[in-house]
Each structure stands twice: as C-alpha cells, then as structure tokens.
C-alpha cells in the first residue's frame, strides 16, 4: 500500500540531529519503505545522513511517502511526531 501525506517541519532549526534521530528510530520499527521528498528530490527517511542533508527549514512543507503493509500506521505515528510540541526542545534550541 502506498500512502502519501504532507507535513510541515515544526522544528526551529529544521531537521537537525535530534528530530532526525527521533524520526529514524520511529520509522525503523516498521517494514514499510519510507521517503521524504522536497524540491523534487527523494530522501530515504530511515537514513540519518539523508535527513540531515535534506534542505527542510522550519515551517516548510514536505511530502512523506510510505510503501508497505504497515504504511497507514507509519503515517499516523509520524504525524504525531511532527505535531508534538516539545517544550524542552524549544528551550534547548538545536543544543
């Protein structure tokens, strides 16, 4: 099953090491293949280095694609992650 959704990058410093780690840790629990796409480029969402080099600033729209049997659940969980308001995070900034 293929599912796509649009997400807005909530983190002040973009997808830096902390959110990237959270994303990868979450997605690795699922079988689906997962990708972000931005500026017509596709990035493997389970790879730290791809996320870190992806040009996604705070407030920017990015597209997420999940391919696999658990795709639906992946998207739901990822949406939660993107919507989480992280107080400590905003205080620490990008550390």
């Amino acid at each position: 099953m293929d599912i796509t959704c649009k997400l807005i990058v909530p983190w002040e410093y973009g997808v830096h090491i902390r959110p990237a780690t959270k994303i990868v840790k979450l997605l690795k629990k699922f079988d689906s293949e997962t990708y972000f796409s931005i500026h017509n480029k596709k990035y493997n969402a389970k790879k730290m280095m791809e996320l870190l080099t992806m040009e996604a600033h705070c407030g920017q729209k990015i597209e997420f694609l999940a391919v696999g049997s658990d795709a639906e659940e992946v998207v739901e969980k990822l949406k939660v992650l993107f919507n989480e308001y992280d107080e400590e995070e905003s205080q620490l900034g990008a550390y």
């Binding site: 902390r18 990237a20 780690t21 990868v24 995070e89 550390y95």
Partner: peptide, 8 residues
Amino acid sequence: DISIIFCG
C-alpha cells in the same frame, strides 16, 4: 534531549 544526540 541530550542523550538522543548520542543515539543519533
């Protein structure tokens, strides 16, 4: 938020 950096 510190420990997750090292996880990364």
